[in-house]
Simulated scan of single mutants.
Amino acid sequence: MISTNDIDRISTAKVIDRDGDKVGSVGQVYVSDDGAQPLFVTVHTGLFGTSESFVPLQGADFTDGELRVAYDKATIKGAPNVDADGAISDDEQGTIFDYYDGHGAGTASGVGGSPAGLTETDTAATGRLDTEGTVGHDTSGPNTDDAFTRSEERLRVGTQQVESGRVRLRKHVVTEQQTVTVPVSHEEVRLEREPITDANRGDALSGPDLSEEEHEVVLTEERPVVQKETVPVERVKLATETVTEQQQVTENVAHEEIDTDIDRR
């Protein structure tokens, strides 16, 4: 059973039908004129929650942030349109009760014409539950109680870690010259003479007796080509270590010595 103690919690609850299907979310909560009993909620339904449907709270249950009502999703969405403008008239209440009575409440009882334990006088002045009608709020109103909530500010003392110093490790670029010896080769021309023999006589006599000719040989050489690449060579980081060393300490020390004095006669 939903009581006034549940009003603040159900005002933001998800609405689940009797079959376990999600219907929408609570829009407004309506209570009796004396503020003793929550009577209806409106449920945001339709595309993007643009429609609101009234649902009686008889037979409803609130558990783990979900308000489970005693009607199925189709029945709730098909409820007559009533403007949720802060109050509902007697005729509008009758229309709502007649509709849900005709569709059956399942686990709910007493719905129809007027809900069980509720007269038309009780429901005529029901209004939207907001900051002016919420039970337990400090704002005066017909549905507030006689208690105030007292709050106080308290100091929270803790510790904060702050920077006390820094040790920096920097790197910079140094340019230096390196000399590398690279072997290179090149071609040179030398003049070779062959005597006329039986082996080369045919080649020697294949041309005219006297002529002017020109032969060309392409010479090649190797030249140094320098390329640079950057490669990682080591990882450097800051660390601390304990070093034990030997130190020499020089100090004057005194000691006593014994002398023998012999008196001869």
Score class of each variant (00 low, 15 high):
K237D: 15
A147R: 14
D8E: 12
F148G: 00
S3H: 06
E132D: 14
N200H: 06
K14T: 15
Q28R: 14
T121F: 12
D101F: 04
G78I: 00
D98C: 00
T139L: 12
T179M: 00
T42E: 02
N5G: 11
R223A: 05
L118C: 08
N81A: 11
G141R: 07
V249S: 06
F40Q: 09
A124D: 11
A79K: 09
V173P: 01
T197S: 15
V26P: 14
D98Y: 01
S3C: 02
S140L: 07
T45S: 08
H103M: 10
H255P: 02
V43Q: 06
E194M: 07
A116K: 10
R18Y: 09
Q248C: 00
K237C: 00
A108D: 04
F54Q: 08
N143Y: 03
Q227T: 14
D90Y: 10
S11M: 11
A70G: 00
G59K: 01
G136V: 08
P208S: 14
V162H: 03
T131R: 12
G133V: 04
V157C: 04
I196H: 07
E222K: 01
A84P: 11
Q248A: 08
V217P: 11
T250E: 15
G24T: 09
A239R: 00
R190K: 11
I88T: 05
